[in-house]
């Protein structure tokens, strides 16, 4: 399978990556090569073989329903640009802010 320019443009938009128009040709060749390489796996006959979801045969760790985290809004917001303190003051938490989203 090979990817045409339009498909590459669509993938870039979906991934929110800005790709200049003159880079699309090169990228479609590179991505097509990657897909072609992975497609070699299709040569293996997997009829009747269960999908392998992990190389380690392990039990999935699970949590009890207990509150063990939270209460640290200042840590959560530490890297935020332009956070907005909640009206209740510092311990009342605060908001992330982004340019206005209009629906």
């Amino acid at each position: 399978m090979s990817l045409d320019k339009d498909t590459v443009r669509k993938i870039a938009i979906l991934a929110r990556i800005r790709v200049p128009a003159d880079a699309l040709d090169g990228l479609s060749v590179e991505l097509s090569n990657i897909i072609g390489w992975v497609e070699q796996l299709n040569e293996v006959d997997t009829e009747g073989v269960e999908p392998m979801t992990s190389v380690a045969d392990m039990d999935w760790p699970r949590r009890d329903d207990e509150i063990t985290d939270g209460g640290r809004a200042q840590d959560i917001l530490a890297n935020a640009t332009d956070p907005e303190p909640a009206p209740g003051g510092k311990d009342g938490g605060g908001f992330f802010t982004v340019p206005k989203v209009v629906e």
Partner: peptide
Amino acid sequence: QAKLFSGAATAFGAGPNTQVSL
């Protein structure tokens, strides 16, 4: 009590971002 994949609380009406884990 806690979220689907983290240990932060689910209660309604808490201060913004006070029930958030990493």
